[in-house]
Design a protein around this nucleic acid. Structure first.
Length: 426
RNA sequence: GUGGGUGUAGCUCAGUUGGUUAGAGCACCAGGUUGUGGCCCUGGGGGUCGGGGGUUCAAGUCCCCUCACUCACCCCA
């Protein structure tokens, strides 16, 4: 016997019962983003490996350990995209999307791939919806992006979340800060956990976020990035905060927010919820400008963006939906043929209904009436249309309203009008 | 990559110190009504007990290995 094949680790099916929620998310995001003047862009799932290596940063965990990278048949190294921003920036540069206007506002949605151990809210194939505002370093753009995300979450019925913001300063400002930070932690490294001692070399900012009690204690006394950033960054951060206030977007400043991708600078932000387990960030982003140069642009291109972890947001939507408990609305006509002789007539009627734009089905074989009625009920049809010998002879059907039990004889034209909720002609 | 938890019917789960033919609820199918669904009643189908090996007269149950799922570390959306 052949072995049963199932989906591979960390890559799950979105089943029909769940697709409704996904469509709501996607449609709401599209409508919102387009109201803010964004256009959709679709880039390939597969890109040259160098795009991500250079764009995200060679030393990041994503690039070093998590990418699905392989040689294609021509011997080129290609990679399944682990995030969306690099591909969008590549497309922006490749097609000179700045030509029409200095500012380009884009959004995208689709699957991303990272080879990680799955857990709650984390998968190997996961979905992101993201936006990028390219071509301006105005903090107004940062605010617009964050406000849009805030409104989207609320439009989806999610209220139980908080916004955390920070500024990482520019790359130049961060360098001396990092040196200070490393010096500080080296002074107290004897009391820190093994992971954090490693982080001194790999990712010192992460130490600020360590969950170990001893490290947290030490992190309290550490120099803060917000004290180290320059005048320009500070002013931009203040302007950003003012815009959030003006839009009634609540936030907390969290100087320990660290982003995992190298290209971030200045404003960064995360939308977090404590209903998501350990992976509590459902949307995160920030400002970047070095990315374009890494991808071969002649000068830096300032940009800001964020991306939503769809699976995590869906989790929150499910949570919010539990409170509503929306009932299903019935629709369509289920045709019931009472015997073999009526079967073909029934097929004709089903097709006329469908051609007229009405949802309609029937059994594939002439089973008992009871069985067909049960099916009509189970599938959530509003009407059953019963077709027996008498009805065929008279050119009518018995149309039964399955909710009220009311039943009337009528021609197929009237059935179609009823099912389309058009007023009856009679 | 590391650690914990869980794998028995389509789903949720029982299954005693190892002991007859592995059960329940829901779901599914049929009948109770030869042309009327939902509720109810009756009956039915469906299981390599995740997989492999071992101990034993005997393994769903004990031991080893393995795989999958899940949660956490790490990291991130």
């Amino acid at each position: 016997m052949a072995q049963k094949i199932q989906s591979i680790t960390g890559m799950s099916d979105i089943l029909p019962a769940d697709v409704c929620l996904w469509r709501t998310l996607e449609a709401t995001a599209r409508r919102q983003f387009e109201n803010y003047g964004f256009s959709e862009i679709r880039t390939p799932l597969l890109e040259e490996t160098a795009l991500f290596a250079r764009g995200i940063g060679t030393d990041t965990q994503v690039v070093q350990k998590e990418m699905y990278t392989f040689e294609d048949r021509g011997g080129d190294s290609v990679t399944l995209r682990p995030e969306g921003t690099a591909g969008v920036m590549r497309a922006y540069l490749q097609h000179s999307l700045d030509a029409a206007d200095g500012i380009t506002k884009l959004y995208y949605m689709g699957p991303m791939f990272r080879y990680e151990r799955p857990q709650k809210g984390r998968f190997r194939q996961f979905h992101q919806i993201g936006v990028e505002i390219i071509g301006t370093d105005s903090p107004g753009a940062d605010a617009e992006a964050v406000i849009m995300m805030d409104r989207l979450a609320k439009a989806l019925g999610i209220s139980d979340f908080r916004l955390e913001i920070n500024s990482l300063g520019t790359l130049e400002e961060r360098k001396p800060y990092l040196t200070n930070l490393i010096d500080y932690f080296k002074g107290v490294s004897g009391e820190m956990c093994a992971d954090c001692i490693k982080r001194l070399d790999t990712n010192p900012l992460r130490i600020l976020d360590c969950k170990q009690e001893a490290c947290r204690e030490k992190a309290k006394g550490a120099p803060t990035i917000l004290d180290a950033i320059g005048y320009g960054s500070r002013q931009a951060f203040e302007a950003f905060k003012t815009s959030l206030h003006n839009a009634n977007v609540a936030f907390v400043v969290n100087p320990r927010i660290v982003r995992g991708l190298d290209y971030y600078e200045k404003t960064t932000f995360e939308f977090v919820s404590d209903k998501l387990g350990a992976q509590s960030t459902f949307s995160g982003g920030g400002r970047y400008s070095g990315l374009a140069m890494e991808l071969g642009a002649k000068k830096p291109v300032p940009a800001v963006g964020f991306s939503i972890g769809c699976e995590r947001l869906i989790l929150l939507m499910e949570e919010a939906k539990k409170k509503d408990g929306a009932g299903q609305n019935l629709s369509g006509v289920y045709f019931i043929g009472l015997n073999e002789g009526c079967f073909y007539e029934c097929q004709k009627l089903v097709q006329r209904a469908r051609d007229a734009g009405v949802k309609a089905e029937m059994d594939y074989t002439a089973k008992s009436m009871k069985s067909q009625m049960r099916r009509a009920n189970k599938l959530g049809y509003k009407y059953a249309a019963i077709v027996g010998d008498d009805e065929v002879a008279q050119g009518v059907v018995q149309l039964k309203n399955l909710a009220s039990g009311e039943q009337n004889k009528m021609g197929i034209g009237d059935v179609i009008n009823r099912a389309k909720n058009l007023p009856d002609r009679l």
